[in-house]
Amino acid sequence: MLAALQLCTGNGESFRNDKMMPQIQPQRAIFLSLFVLLCLTLLGARPLSAQEGAPMNSGAVSPNDVNEIAKDLWCPLCSGVRLDACELKACEQMRDMIAVQLEEGQNKEQIKAYFLEQYGPQVMGEPPLQGFNLLAWILPFAALAGGGIFVWRRLRKMIVQKPQPAGVLTPAVEEKYHQQLEEELKRYG
């Protein structure tokens, strides 16, 4: 389960930015690192179509070459079954068609475009980035951002309004108590 961690096939690009901010506050550090991580992962989560399709040779096409493309396509008749794993006759014929197109020298993107045209967006396994279907992509992130802003504002309101309660230790005092505790533990431990 949790196949969700598959974001894209990873093309080795690095988005690393190791610059550390000096004297960074712990709470800021948490949110900053969460934000950076989100940006990193979102930046990298490009659609599979962004991958370059390697030009195919015109020699004999192996089932592995066919499956390499069929893995990115979906059975138009079943629910959530990949083309390389579907056992329907129709899908077998679709795989044969991939082999024919590979022999003709078509590349991955051309073959995928052909199937999209022939069978509609159902073969892509994801909503196309156009028209009404754009909503499928936008709404989850909009809802997440909206929820995030709501939580953030509520949290900020609580923290700003809240006077420092008398019983709460300041970091300096806590540090002092911590040292005292360590010393006493050493003495009696």
Partner: peptide
């Protein structure tokens, strides 16, 4: 729209994947 589309693993992996990573962290 009257059009049948499929929303399968590619969609969920791209949308939920980064969120699961954050959750794990």
């Amino acid at each position: 729209t009257g059009e049948r589309i499929s929303v399968a693993a590619p969609f969920f992996n791209k949308v939920n994947g980064p969120l699961f990573l954050l959750l794990l962290l």
